[in-house]
């Protein structure tokens, strides 16, 4: 009995530790360096689990990961705001192993700043 309770506690700990070891959804991005990109949207998705846009900024094309659709909607970022051809500014962090991917902390469209975290 005592033994199995011990194992059970161990299992609970396994469950708690595994996600904790993986930190957080933002940990794959270099949060020590806030990057600001401005450009034109060339592709966008108002989709689960996270919306995204690709934007051409200077010579480079970036994919910016936005927020879940519910959050975007609640904060006032509409699908039209990120439609193809729109000029946007995104601030966020570059992915540690994918230099063309950025997780957006906020987006500026039509002089409206929308926090995405």
């Amino acid at each position: 009995m005592y033994k199995s309770v011990k194992y059970f506690i161990f299992l609970l700990l396994c469950n708690i530790c595994l996600p904790a070891m993986a930190h957080h959804g933002w940990s794959e991005y270099d949060q020590t360096n806030l990057v600001k990109l401005s450009g034109t949207v060339t592709q966008s998705g108002y989709e689960h689990p996270h919306g995204f846009i690709t934007l051409v900024s200077g010579e480079r094309t970036f994919t910016a990961v936005l927020a879940p659709p519910f959050r975007m909607e609640n904060r006032g970022l509409t699908p039209e705001n990120i439609a193809v051809g729109t000029r946007v500014v995104v601030e966020g962090y570059i992915h540690r192993s994918k230099p063309n991917e950025l997780r957006a902390e906020r987006i500026v469209v039509n002089n409206k700043v929308i926090e995405l975290r």
Binding site: L11, N15, L18, G25, S27, E28
Partner: peptide
């Protein structure tokens, strides 16, 4: 039984982890 308890716990952990990488 122990393999099963540990194993399924790890499966749950891995599934949760998938959302973060």
């Amino acid at each position: 039984a122990i393999v099963s308890l540990v194993g399924w716990s790890v499966v749950i952990g891995l599934g949760r982890w998938l959302a973060y990488v």
